[in-house]
Amino acid sequence: MTKVLIVEDEDIVARMYEKALKFNNFEVEVAIGGNEGLEKVKSFKPDLVLLDIMMPEPDGMEVLEKIKSDPETSGLPIVMLTNLSGKHDAEHALSKGAIEYWVKSSVDIKDLGGMINNIVNEKHPENQSN
């Protein structure tokens, strides 16, 4: 099963994604806030991280930078899932190593699982059998 870590400061939002993904047969772990996110990246060892940006310190951009600067986790695909819709924010995140930048309002929750699978399968073609 594909392991997804959701880093999100709002528990109701996190839970929404958690339930939807679990329903689609993902193994899901939720981290409330950036610090918990950084811990769980190491303990849970996810295949992909869904990372919110607007969070109390450390925010999503800082978390992204930390994950990418740690050699142990730098290869992890990180998808920014945020309410910020500016082009500027997207470019910034992609330049820091995020693999995708999704705006929450334009991601249909029904499609989320498929979108994640696309990325994971592209990254690790051997997992395609999942």
Partner: peptide, 23 residues
Amino acid sequence: ASHELRTPLSVITGNLDTVLAGY
């Protein structure tokens, strides 16, 4: 404000969506 307005709404629709999808 727009973020705050959207978040609860998207949670409502998101969860309803999941339930309707069969959860």
